[in-house]
């Protein structure tokens, strides 16, 4: 068990004001928090671990990818999540004037390089949450021009396709696929990715994935088969967010030899390389 990777000096634990809370799409909440100290520290792919301030239930924090660090209002951080249980319900019920307790930024961010590769961001449902910020930072860092990014959004149905407009605003080409064929390509995100890759034949590609585990496993298989370097942002039930409670472990290949070890999604993740992740 590695005692490395976390940089506690970069992590803050604080209470903050809720600036805004609204329904971005049916069942999908956008929560805007006032985090002027934390905002500049956030790297694309990191997450915040939050809970309503001053309550006993829900007891544990919930981890959410950072969806946006908007230029205005300064210091705001936006999180995007779907309401699925009592924890997300309570957090979705926070309103301006209430307070949240926030721990972050946590986890290892996405890595990127300006090597001319096309960055394909593959999202399943609410797994799209970290990608508008990643696209923005890829472009802002001068690493990757918008035309060399593709957003591939898969969802069960049209109403569950989130964030198209964010990619449009960034000038990032966006492909949509739905399981029921109600919008775009009729099929899942990974099938759609295979089609997008056909169109990019001959160009170096880097894949970023985030979404439900079955989708990510299929995406990992695709990456391995096509010998494409990929990074997957994965989600696991977690308690502390700091690698201490050892809840959110996944199996990762040892650097040398055939064996494996556990790494925590909160601390060594949430972003893992497709080559080493064994689940």
């Amino acid at each position: 068990m590695a005692l490395t990777a976390l940089r506690p000096e970069k992590v803050l634990l604080l209470e903050c004001d809720v600036l805004d809370s609204r329904e971005k799409a049916p069942g999908c909440r956008l929560l805007r928090l006032d985090l002027p100290e934390m905002a500049p520290r956030i790297e694309a792919g990191q997450f915040l671990h939050i809970r309503p301030a001053g309550v006993l239930t829900p007891y544990l924090r919930r981890p959410f990818s950072v969806y946006d660090v908007p230029a205005s209002p300064r210091g705001a951080v936006d999180l995007l999540f779907t309401v699925i249980g009592s924890g997300t319900y309570a957090l979705g019920s926070l309103r301006p004037g209430t307070r949240a307790s926030v721990l972050g930024p946590l986890g290892r961010p996405f890595r990127f390089a300006s090597d001319g590769a096309v960055s394909v961001l593959v999202a399943g449902g609410i797994g799209v949450a970290p990608f508008p910020d990643l696209a923005k930072k890829l472009i802002a860092a001068g690493s990757v021009p918008a035309k060399d990014i593709r957003a591939v959004l898969g969802a069960r149905s049209r109403s569950l396709v989130f964030c198209r407009e964010d990619f449009a605003a960034l000038g990032v080409p966006c492909e949509v696929g739905t399981d029921d064929g109600s919008e775009g390509f009729h099929g899942n995100a990974v099938q759609l990715t295979a089609r997008v890759l056909e169109g990019l034949r001959g160009q170096p590609v880097r894949i970023y994935g985030c979404g439900p585990e079955p989708m990510l496993r299929a995406l990992q298989k695709l990456c391995v088969e096509r010998k494409i370097s990929g990074q997957l942002s994965i989600d696991r039930r977690m308690a502390c967010g700091l690698g201490i409670c050892r809840s959110c472990v996944v199996r990762v290949k040892d650097p040398a030899g055939p064996d494996w070890h556990f790494e925590t999604v909160c601390r060594e993740g949430p972003v893992f390389d497709t080559e080493t992740l064994l689940w």
């Binding site: 977690m238 308690a239 409670c245």
Partner: peptide, 23 residues
């Protein structure tokens, strides 16, 4: 290495754990 995941689950005002002495 400890137990296979899932290892924890939130309960009212608490949590269950079965980490399995990973150390």
């Amino acid at each position: 290495r400890g137990n296979a995941p899932p290892r924890t689950f939130e309960t009212p005002a608490g949590m269950l754990n079965s980490i399995g002495l990973e150390n």
